[in-house]
Simulated assay, not measured.
Amino acid sequence: MGSTGGLLKNGNKSALIAAVVNTIIAIVKGAAYLFTGNVAMFAETMHTLGDAANQYFVYIGSALSKKAPTDRYPNGFGRLVNLVLLGAVIIVGIMSYETVKEGYHHILHPTESSGVWISLSVLGVAVILETYVLYKAMKEVLHETNTEGKGLAVIGKSFGALRKASPATKLVFMEDLVATSGGVIAIIGILLSYYGGWHAAEGIASIIIGLMMFYVVGRVFMDNARGALGEADQDLEDKIAEYIFTNPEIKDIKALFAFKEGEEFHIESKLEIDPFISVKEAIVLKNRIESKIHQIRGVTDVIIEFDEDDGIRSWHGHGNK
């Protein structure tokens, strides 16, 4: 874990796969754009280049976030992945702007592109590859959130579980979803231009793709801004509270926080217990609760404090507030 090579082995695998595939796709799309001058192909080239760069950042950031705490940084590097992703969205933002601008210029001055079948062939292959990467990202979402799903069921369940996925996997999922959709939109734009004579369709397709990229920028920025500030996971807090109350010695929960640090969770709690239990029983109880909470995926440390029951109910759960 100490060396850079060791850390990179723990990077987000779906991000690395997506980055490599998108690098290859971007090179092919770029060559096709230079040959055809197709503005929809330009939009897809910029989009794929942004995705590839972003996903390399994601892979490196997710790996470095797992670096062990040091004397200088005793709380670890969990939030590093959020900071890296905040920087990465700048790249997508620039690519989005260029894509929309080029599409707008093409609408104002529409021209007929050449090599239409080259563009369609490249985009067709790209959509197939990006669909494969998207499916891999969907499976990673299910893996991270402990959600069961096989075959086509993976698609629907991944959307439902996406909110609980890690920032890195969430970004890869959203980018690949937009990439796949963008490829289809680019194909439609080219077909309308070539067969319908509506040359502005390529520019409109470029703008739509750019706006979709801007949507990803906004979503990723907000998600990682919350993560960088140390967002509490209320669903996890309720889940932990439910288990805690299965222990009859626990009379109330005075405080319970599940802080998300990148892809890791830090749990802090103050529990009110039966004042008549012995110190030995309290230690056994504390160890039992800690052990159970540590079994939750992503939890790295648990802090539990005990206090005497004051007879006043404090915990009502987030759903009842």
Rank of each mutant, 00 (worst) to 15 (best):
A63E: 06
A88T: 04
A126C: 12
G182Q: 11
H47N: 05
S314P: 04
I90E: 00
V81L: 04
F173E: 02
L123F: 13
I25M: 02
E202D: 12
E272S: 06
L152H: 12
L83W: 10
I208A: 12
A43S: 07
I303L: 15
G50H: 02
I289F: 04
V21G: 05
F42G: 03
A255I: 06
H318R: 14
L211C: 05
E98W: 04
K170D: 01
I91W: 03
E98V: 03
D238I: 10
V58Y: 00
V302A: 06
I312A: 02
K239I: 01
A165C: 13
L7A: 01
D176H: 14
G78P: 00
M1D: 09
E202Q: 15
N75H: 05
M41W: 08
H109G: 09
G78V: 03
G189H: 04
Y243L: 10
S278Y: 14
S269M: 03
A225P: 03
D252K: 01
G87P: 10
L162G: 15
A18K: 02
P69D: 08
N54Y: 01
G262R: 11
A200N: 08
E249F: 02
D71M: 06
T4V: 12
I24S: 11
V178A: 07
I289W: 00
N12Q: 14
S62C: 08
L236G: 02
E140A: 15
W198G: 02
G160T: 08
H316Q: 08
K66R: 15
A19L: 09
I253L: 10
M222V: 08
G311T: 07
S3N: 11
L83P: 09
N75E: 07
N287T: 06
L152E: 14
I273L: 11
H106S: 12
E264V: 08
I277G: 02
G11F: 04
T180S: 14
A32H: 02
D252R: 01
E98C: 13
G61Y: 00
A201C: 01
A19S: 00
L83N: 08
S166M: 08
G37N: 06
E102T: 13
G230V: 01
F276A: 06
L211I: 13
T111G: 14
